Simulated assay, not measured.
Amino acid sequence: MSKNRDASGATPATVALLAAGVPFTPHAYAHDAGSTNFGAEAASELNLDPERVFKTLLADVDGSLVVAIVPVSGKLDLKALASAVGGRKAEMADPKLAERRTGYIVGGISPIGQKTKHATVLDETAELFDTIFVSGGKRGFDIELAPTDLLRVTDGIIAAIGRDS
């Protein structure tokens, strides 16, 4: 992997990665404006195993927003997420609130470079891969990086928070 020094495609995520000295590889693809399954679209367009492409979701756990990063091939286990952060109850966050708090639009929410820092949990299946793909901060743009680097730059933890669809 190499560091992308091209500022023309800069997003808050790439700016944060460059500032932290984290190696990553940018991957742009043609986003279909009619698509609503953004993670599956990324996996298909980039010709990747969907288990290696991760979606960024925001959940409300006992009144606090938490970032959950799970494979696009599965779903978020809300109970497991709540447990991972010491909470009791989790529900999906309102999409408009997620956009306001992260600074990104739905379908392009990156776990990196968010406007407001949130507790972050990465599904344990990420450890199966040397690198994974997450949103780069806009639709049609993913970032490839090592799971350990993603955890470091987000101050995240790893836990079993995903389940099969």
Rank of each mutant, 00 (worst) to 15 (best):
A119W: 03
M1A: 13
D123P: 04
A82F: 04
I161R: 15
G107T: 07
P23L: 06
T25Y: 10
A126T: 13
R152E: 10
T25I: 05
V70D: 02
L151G: 09
A146L: 03
K115T: 12
R101P: 04
I69Y: 03
F38R: 09
L150T: 05
A98C: 12
P23D: 14
A80R: 15
V67Y: 01
S44L: 13
I143C: 02
S135M: 04
S8Q: 09
V106G: 04
T56H: 07
T102E: 11
V153M: 01
P95G: 06
D77M: 04
P12G: 08
S8N: 05
V67P: 00
T11K: 08
G34P: 06
A93G: 07
G39A: 00
G9W: 12
K75Q: 13
L76M: 11
A84G: 07
R52W: 02
D60Q: 03
T56A: 01
R5F: 14
A42L: 04
S135Y: 08
S73G: 09
P26W: 02
R163S: 13
E41Y: 03
R163W: 00
A42S: 10
L57F: 00
G103F: 03
F38M: 01
T154L: 02
T36G: 11
D130I: 00
T154D: 02
L97W: 06
Y29R: 05
G39D: 00
Q114D: 05
D142N: 15
A160N: 14
G137P: 12
E51W: 13
L128E: 13
D60A: 03
P50G: 09
A90P: 00
V61D: 05
T56R: 03
Y29M: 02
A10D: 14
K89Y: 03
Q114M: 15
G140M: 08
K115W: 01
A33V: 14
